[in-house]
Design a protein around this nucleic acid. Structure first.
Length: 587
RNA sequence: GCCGAAGUAGCUCAAUGGUAGAGCAUUCCCUUCGUAAGGGAGAGGUUAUGGGUUCAAAUCCCAUCUUCGGCUCCA
């Protein structure tokens, strides 16, 4: 959930950014400063390098220059200027002139902050009183960023840094970044053998390796079972279809930059699907529908293909084919709200199962400026009811005006990854457009034709992204039901292999995912290996276990958890029972 | 796509213009071990790909591919 950062900390970071700018101008006088705010974890500074080559190798030099400014303990002094005075002050800086245009438009005065008499920047503050009050800082990274966040504008250079009140806090933060990198799904995914990305296949094209495939399959089973209980019907549809389908849906006109080029089959253009909607429309349309049949909920765990820009690809979090836990709900207009809430409840239910608590909801609403389909009443009612539902469950959300789809309001689940980057996962979208375009109908109580309302929804979003989020969330230590290998059997020596195989057979017959470490290694080594693989349970088989079996024909085993906890000699069937209780409905 | 950085054995990394190397993993041998690394030997590389500079290139230059950090965009 959103945290508010302490005001003093923000002021200090903002001042630190001014110090960075001042140092940069001293070292690289040619650059033109653009802007730089304090942010949640630090600050950044954007500038136009004007041909100057600056890289992380320069950080030490820049930091040393910043230290000098801090040591001088210069006062920060706020001054109000008229627009004209400010224009003169920043006469050679086009970026500041553009800011001043904005300020002028709003009819406000320009405020500037002087750092002693050495530096001045257009800025509304706040700042700390003196540069000497700025705590320990560190420059972190350098990157490109578009001027004012618009990709049509010039690409500027951005330097990220951070600053804290004490050395201890700074070190803790830097340590946290290092720790977070160990949780990265790309690091853990490689160690645990969950997926493969290789240039031989192509950028953004992901191969699910056996361990990853188990996790995905268990999630698919969960979703299908849960949806079946909630009245969904599951379908399968092809990966390609005639182009005209997406012309009808409007995607060919509005979404083409995300779609792959058409292919010719028997002289006809076909597309690889970027979404499943048209296929589900066809199924709905294939027979007359009565109001008594509605809602009809057509679901499919389906892979769709979308062109993502090369620089946007990122492990499993952003790929070029995504497997959505997709469904389309066709309902009467008066059922739309209940259906929306039903989906919302499903999402909350699933998030709880995965123990994901660190998320927020983004409600995409209309903005007054843009055009939308559908009538005003259903929009207003939908928005109101959605908000009520969220509040009823005590969840935080942010309203985002203008983030609605043009065919209806939507609710997205936003989750942060280990590196604090935000990713859109689940989504619910109300749609008044596609039923129109595909001419969908049902017969109402009076025998008249009526238009159904459509809800598009994917509670997890995509399985690729979802598994990435889970890997980082659990740091690879998946709950028992998701663990690729649930039990590793460790024979104390080769002599116990036969007995270990008996145990293996029993566990496998009980649908548990177990295997035996057959290597001629020491017990310690085998335990270490399995623990690093995050296997939840280790079953140790040695003389003790075999002897107890020979005595009374009861299988006894020693169990160790991946957390390092030893359990005493226990009965095998009791162990199986407790595992099955843990796994419960996920078996 | 844009700005910047990088690509060496399956993995993590070394080698700054002069014979490509280590640890882990893998294979074989010895060991047969009781709760986080037993010992030894072997195998493994056209240094991402293609071109160029040079007596000589992993190393310098160019192009392409891929990856990483951002920006933009998104499930």
């Amino acid at each position: 959930m959103k945290k508010t950062v302490d005001k003093n900390l923000l002021a200090m970071r903002h001042t630190c950014e001014h110090i960075l700018t001042q140092a940069m101008l001293k070292l690289f006088p040619k650059i033109k400063m653009a802007m730089g705010p304090a942010i949640d974890n630090g600050f950044y500074f954007d500038f136009d390098p004007q041909g100057e080559k600056i890289s992380e190798a320069d950080f030490a030099k820049i930091e040393a220059e910043m230290e000098k400014i801090i040591r001088k303990d210069l006062p920060l002094v706020k001054k109000e200027l008229s627009i004209n005075e400010a224009r003169k002050l920043f006469a050679d800086n086009p970026y500041k002139q553009e800011w001043l245009d904005e300020i002028e438009k709003k009819g406000e005065k320009a405020t500037v902050y002087y750092t002693g008499d050495e530096f001045v920047d257009l800025c509304s503050g706040p700042h700390v009183s003196n540069t000497g009050n700025v705590g320990p800082f560190k420059l972190l990274s350098i990157a490109g960023a578009y001027w004012r966040g618009n990709e049509k504008n010039k690409m500027l250079t951005r330097i990220y840094g951070t600053c804290f009140s004490s050395k201890q806090e700074l070190d803790e933060y830097l340590w946290k970044i290092q720790e977070a990198k160990k949780r990265d799904h790309r690091v853990i995914g490689k160690k645990l053998g969950l997926y493969l990305l290789t240039p031989d296949v192509g950028a953004g094209l992901l191969l699910w390796t056996p361990n990853g495939a188990i996790i995905r399959r268990k999630i698919e089973e969960l979703i299908i079972n849960e949806q079946t209980k909630r009245g969904y019907q599951h379908v399968y549809t092809p990966h390609i279809g005639r182009k005209q389908l997406w012309q009808t849906s409007g995607h060919w006109d509005l979404y083409r930059d995300k779609m792959y080029s058409p292919m010719k089959i028997d002289d006809e253009d076909y597309l690889v699907k970027p979404m499943n909607c048209p296929f589900h429309m066809m199924i709905y349309q294939s027979q007359p529908r009565s109001y008594k049949d509605l809602p009809i909920r057509l679901a499919e765990i389906a892979t769709v293909y979308r062109y993502e820009k090369a620089g946007e690809l990122s492990g499993m979090l952003r790929v070029r084919h995504i497997t959505q836990d997709d469904a389309h709900i066709f309902c009467q207009p008066k059922q739309a709200i209940d259906e929306f809430i039903g989906v919302f409840d499903l999402i909350v239910y699933l998030l709880k199962i995965f123990k994901i608590e660190n998320y927020y909801l983004r409600l995409g609403l209309r903005s007054p400026k843009e055009k939308y389909l559908g009538n005003d009443n259903i929009w207003k009612k939908a928005e109101g009811e959605i908000i009520k539902a969220i509040k009823k469950r005590g969840l935080e959300y942010i309203k985002s005006e203008g983030d609605a789809a043009f065919y209806g309001p939507k609710l997205d689940v936003i989750i942060k990854d280990s590196l604090q980057r935000e990713w859109q996962c689940g989504t619910i979208q109300l749609d008044f457009m596609l039923p129109e375009r595909f001419n969908l109908e049902y017969i109402n109580e009076k025998g008249e034709k009526e238009r159904p309302v459509l809800i598009h929804r994917a509670p997890l979003g995509s399985l690729e992204r979802w598994v990435a989020i889970l890997i980082e969330h659990f740091a690879g230590s998946f709950p028992l039901w998701l663990s690729p290998t649930q039990i590793m059997i460790v024979p104390v020596s080769d002599r116990f292999l036969a007995y270990a195989n008996n145990i293996l057979k029993i566990l496998q017959d009980e649908n548990l995912r177990a295997s035996i470490d057959q290597s001629s290694e020491t017990v310690s080594k085998k335990i270490r290996k399995a623990t690093l693989q995050k296997i939840p349970y280790l079953v140790i088989i040695g003389n003790k276990e075999v002897e107890s079996y020979q005595k009374d024909k009861n299988y006894q085993i020693s169990v160790r958890t991946r957390e390092g906890k030893d359990l005493d000699l226990i009965d095998l069937y009791q162990f199986i029972k407790s595992l099955k209780e843990q796994i419960g409905k996920f078996l």
